[in-house]
Design a protein around this nucleic acid. Structure first.
Lengths: 340, 340
DNA sequence: CTGAAAGCGCTTACAG
DNA sequence: CTGAAAGCGCTTACAG
């Protein structure tokens, strides 16, 4: 049965020196034993480990960071941890770096550029060994600052052609265009888009619009939802159908909004896809399970995180990255289901 | 336009001494200016702030932690950040401590006690000023260790009568009992429960069973879902209805599972609530929006986080806590909707 | 394979 | 209102 003593009474924690004394060796050797056990004689190692267990020694990572100039922190910035699709990306990062000795410091900037700026400052003070950002950073001051910082940074979810450092994403433009081509192929002519004003949603709308134009069809109607909830999807649908009763296809920027649109159609007894086709983005479980099931764009949410984590590990190990690896397009896939 | 220079080229960041030199004062005074600006003469303060801006100085928090023995870190342990109901609690914590100078270090232990044990160790090494745990800790070694640590710890989501330090929760037993009483009042006699094996789900089942017994009715059937997904809710429903075709009410341990049950009823054309009543827990948006809308138990997810954060701030400010405040029951509410 | 010395960049008493 | 000195607990060269 393992002792998990984490220290004596509050504030009186054992230091590396205490371990060294008990093991009859020096602090240096204890430090080495903990980080590179193979470089310490087996008997010495055994005595040190016994002392560590006995005292419940846990290294003070603040001291360690200060001395080594490595914090062991991987900072992750997300627009909101409340959105499960983003947490998939975080989980991908966690999976990739699980074996490495890195703690994830997660900052939630609540979709606000201003909060993100403050957060970046707070995180930088912690000297993270690397940064993963969900979404691209568009604030030029922050971009410059991070660039000068010299720590590996991976932006995700967008394919910024000029990343701060590295980017792992997919084309939001292509996502919109793919949905549009699918709808056109299904005979839809009068379309609409429901999505926010941030760069990702706008890119989706741009692609969506372009593909309709390429087919010689009019530009889509467009509605901005109050937030990314089912209720807002319902409401946006209501406004849209009132303004443009003849629309026959709606692309929602995320599945959550699309589920709202679909439920509202059911409530109003509007036939889907007979009268109106509905598509979302994200391949969330609820869309998959709805009846009829929701056509959607599959986003590599988890894969982006994992790849970002791998790039960071490679960079920290000072391995060279092939130039092409700094911009990684993980692609998307259309999942044509019953609502179109 | 604010300069957001965060440092020179990689690794060559300005230190407090550089700021002091540029401002013509000492490191001590710079340190004081940054933390207690009102204790520094206005002109001195102005010169220091100018120097800070000019150099893009950001204090090294590792050095700060080491010297002050305060890390400015609030560690939060969650079973999984993928579950939006838990992230509500995290957000509550964030809201409560927003004004304080605390960074949230979020650890995801993936529902595994073993991972949680490792995580606790890793986090303790970072000397967090306080800990919030989503869920109670049942591992005795971890409990002892945290207790000895002397840092404020708040457990949430369960009402442990003997908390490590403090607890903010609700009664899972009462949640189950409340649903059962509601179902009995609606004339249901033959019930079933779908939920996992962790302590919270078990407490819900215990309360559910007790209330049926109190009404002189037989104990519920019970099914363990593969995970907490809609699909698993569907499958559990399928197994249940096959094993006990006469059940007339099912309580799912979370709304996500309940939505699965409800969708499966719709697919099989089983009338809800005519033939079977369905209830969930969590008051998630999808349940609210389903047609028919889902009866559920409202959980104070956000409030638990906020209260936990407040308790921690009070403790860190060394304010005395009334004894009763160490165990806070935030209560639950039945939201009787269309599925029962 | 092991250790003595110096230093990482801050803050804490303490004094003035 | 301000500052000189000491120290927080580790790790980094360096030497042997």
């Amino acid at each position: 049965m393992e002792e998990l003593a984490i220290g004596k009474a509050g504030g009186d924690r054992p230091r590396i020196e205490d371990v060294a004394t008990l093991a009859g060796t020096s602090a240096m050797t204890v430090s080495r034993a903990l980080r590179q056990p193979d470089k310490v004689a087996p008997e010495t190692l055994a005595r040190i480990m016994a002392a560590v267990d006995r005292l419940g020694y846990v290294p003070n990572l603040a001291a360690s960071s200060l001395a080594s100039r490595r914090s062991g922190i991987l900072a992750v910035l997300v627009p909101t941890i409340g959105n499960s699709i983003f947490s998939e990306t975080v989980r991908g990062v966690a999976d990739a770096v699980a074996a490495a000795d890195l703690n994830l410091l997660i900052g939630d900037f609540g979709y606000s550029e201003d909060t993100r700026r403050k957060l970046v400052r707070a995180l930088v003070g912690r000297q993270p060994d690397a940064l993963v950002i969900v979404g691209a950073v568009h604030d030029e001051a922050v971009r410059m600052a991070l660039r000068r910082q010299g720590t590996p940074v991976v932006e995700t979810w967008e394919l910024n052609p000029d990343p701060i450092d590295m980017v792992v994403g997919f084309s939001n433009f292509e996502a919109g265009a793919t949905v549009a081509r699918h709808l056109v192929a299904r005979g839809r002519r009068r379309s609409a888009f429901v999505g926010g004003l941030e760069s990702r949603a706008r890119a989706r709308l741009a692609g969506f619009t372009a593909a309709f134009a390429a087919a010689g069809l009019p530009p889509p109607e467009s509605e901005v939802p109050a937030d990314l909830s089912i209720a807002s999807g319902r409401e946006a649908f209501g406004r849209l159908i009132e303004r443009a009763p003849d629309i026959d296809a709606i692309f929602f920027a995320t599945d959550v909004l699309a589920v709202g649109g679909l439920l509202e159609c059911q409530r109003r007894a509007i036939d889907v896809p007979g009268r109106i086709a509905i598509a979302g983005l994200g391949n969330l479980e609820i869309g998959r399970q709805m009846q009829p099931s929701l056509t959607t764009i599959e986003i590599p949410a988890h894969a982006m995180g994992r790849r970002a984590g791998e790039l960071i590990l490679a960079r920290l190990a000072k391995r060279e990255l092939p130039a092409g690896d700094r911009i990684v397009d993980l692609g998307i896939a259309l999942l044509a289901r019953e609502t179109t």
